[in-house]
């Protein structure tokens, strides 16, 4: 565990807490893509099945359990508790366009052809594109609430910090995992346009709006 990895985890944790707080405090999930949240729940469920097969550390177990539990709690808030505020007309990205190609890729490009390893690979690939329904929704409505922008920024920074962690681990530990690295770079690149808007608008006190 190095400082970049830890910062990445903290950023990820912060993103989830910002999202839950936003929905809970405003009693509304307006502007949030339920589809991205379903994809994230699928990501954590398929990745953390090793909770049943191996124990690494209390930290590792606690974080995995938190990510799984919070993803289902978010889905509950969007689709049940505050479903009247869910903006389904703007959440029109087709999940199967992401899940099916990613599933095929996980069967073809993986470290080991075993069920758990294929599911882990699937979750790494799926995570890299899981934010697309949310970004699609923002581009469709042309705007995002400031709190939603903070959520997206923290979520984007998490994988960006993991990349720095992988560079560090490559140099100091000789460890690298090409599947995680390539997927992590794809994931971070998808946020670049948003990062630009965040820095040029949100950090200057303006709401995030896209040119028409």
């Amino acid at each position: 565990m190095n400082v970049f990895r830890l910062s990445g985890d903290v950023s990820h944790l912060l993103a989830i807490l910002i999202l839950l707080m936003k929905i809970w405090k405003t009693r509304s999930c307006a502007g949030i893509s339920g589809k991205s949240q379903i994809l994230f729940a699928l990501v954590y469920t398929t990745r953390y099945l090793d909770l049943f097969t191996s124990f690494i550390s209390p930290y590792n177990t606690a974080m995995k359990v938190f990510f799984i539990a919070s993803s289902y709690a978010t889905i509950y808030l969007i689709y049940l508790k505050f479903k009247a505020t869910y903006d389904r007309n703007h959440d029109t990205f087709r999940m199967e366009f992401l899940v099916l190609p990613v599933l095929v890729l996980a069967f073809v490009v993986n470290h080991d052809f075993t069920p758990l390893e294929i599911l882990w690979t699937f979750s790494i690939y799926l995570e890299s594109v899981a934010i697309l329904p949310q970004l699609f929704m923002v581009s469709k409505t042309g705007q995002a609430e400031t709190i939603t922008s903070h959520y997206l920024f923290a979520l984007g920074m998490y994988r960006a910090l993991y990349i720095v962690n992988w560079v560090y681990r490559y140099y100091f530990e000789g460890f690298y995992d090409l599947i995680a690295i390539i997927a992590g770079v794809v994931q971070t690149v998808l946020y670049c346009d948003f990062f630009y808007l965040y820095v040029t608008k949100v950090l200057k006190g303006k709401q995030l709006t896209l040119p028409a």
Partner: peptide, 10 residues
């Protein structure tokens, strides 16, 4: 290196 099923990173 980590074993394939021993995933420390999240």
């Amino acid at each position: 290196e980590l074993e394939p099923l021993d995933k420390d990173e999240l």
